[in-house]
């Protein structure tokens, strides 16, 4: 067994087990921490593809920012088992159906995609380097890139608006 395959197996085991533990652990904080571990192992998968930029950005954005805010909320809410809202059967059923549909879509995507490793290897350009990545993003994918940035800007303005104190009327 080659080293890469061995590392892949270990990483996959960690990813899957932490993902399941995220769902099944009783304490919300433990769920959040398992999710952080899961994100780290996903970053490890990116590193196996030699996608350093993606791996580091994944850690910064997901583990470093989003999950910390998650932990903040969970810690402050002090969730206990008794506070858990009872979920009606319809919701559970709907969740199951949505899960199955999503996995079908993902499977279809995986089957349909054509791996383009060959031609990329032939060009001899290092597609993992940030220089190439930036050029591709700003040349070929300019429009979606700008749309994504506008979306983020709108979300940011919305967050600022929400957090602003509403003016109380003076009597």
């Amino acid at each position: 067994m080659s080293t890469v395959l061995l590392i892949f197996c270990i990483l996959s085991a960690i990813t899957l087990s932490t993902a399941f533990l995220t769902i099944f652990s009783k304490q919300p904080i433990h769920s959040a921490i398992y999710l952080v571990l899961c994100f780290f192992s996903v970053a490890g998968h990116y590193l196996l593809f030699n996608a350093q930029f993606l791996a580091v950005v994944h850690i910064i954005v997901y583990s470093g920012a989003i999950m910390i805010l998650f932990l903040f909320t969970v810690m402050l809410m002090n969730l206990n088992k008794e506070d858990e809202v009872h979920k009606p059967r319809v919701t559970r059923l709907a969740a199951g159906i949505i899960f199955i549909l999503t996995s079908l879509v993902l499977l279809a995507i995986f089957i349909q995609t054509k791996p383009i490793v060959g031609p990329y290897d032939d060009t001899g350009v290092d597609y993992q380097s940030i220089k190439v990545l930036g050029q591709v993003l700003l040349n070929e994918y300019m429009v979606p890139f700008e749309f994504a940035s506008i979306l983020l800007l709108v979300a940011m303005i919305g967050a600022v608006l929400l957090s602003k104190r509403e003016k109380t009327e003076k009597n």
Binding site: V56, I59, I60, G64
Partner: peptide, 19 residues
């Protein structure tokens, strides 16, 4: 290639120890 981003990634993980 991304050493500065690596430093930032490590920094952002540092919050976990405290939290």
């Amino acid at each position: 290639d991304v050493s500065i981003l690596y430093v930032f990634g490590v920094l952002s993980v540092g919050v976990y120890g405290i939290m």
